[in-house]
Amino acid sequence: MLSKLIITAAFLGISATTAFAHSTLEVTEAHVGASYKAVIRVPHGCEGKPTLALRVQIPEGMIAAKPMPKPGWTLEKIKGAYAKSYDYFGTPMKEGVKEIVWKGGSLADDEYEEFVFRAFLTESLPVGKTLYVPLVQECPDGATERWIEVPAEGKSSDDLESPAPGIRLLEKKSGH
């Protein structure tokens, strides 16, 4: 009896890792003061409609964002000023990519795709907290799927319908 229960629990645990109904980030923990490779996983479209564009907002404190081009999709890098100047390996950075848009493609509702960008997590980010990276999927006829909800202080993303993917910020790695 006990063994059956354990197996069930194990399966539940494993199945949860395989069903990605939300758009999420593959790596959910990262060190500040280091580069971060963001892999955005898009499991479905908007209420059955195909995804025509994916927009990512680069949160404050995440700088020097560089998207990875994707065949069949056009890239758009929307630049703007940061809230403050950040030190990027000794170079002060005051502006950069604030939003990345992959568009012009078509990802059917029953297909899976990954979108990649790389960015630097500055040391000004609060260690121990979660940095949220809001995403918007745009579909035909103005339909959207917005992964932008951020849990209130002390609450969990589990309770949200469309949570923004987050990165738990770890302390800066010491030495090289």
């Binding site: 197996i7 194990a10 645990g13 949860a16 990605f20 059955g48 319908e161």
Partner: peptide, 23 residues
């Protein structure tokens, strides 16, 4: 079995929970 179950739990902790939505 305990080990398998723990693995499952750890894997689970790593991802955001995914909910179904009405299309």
């Amino acid at each position: 079995l305990m080990a398998i179950a723990l693995c499952g739990l750890f894997l689970q902790a790593g991802v955001a929970f995914a909910h179904a939505a009405l299309n």
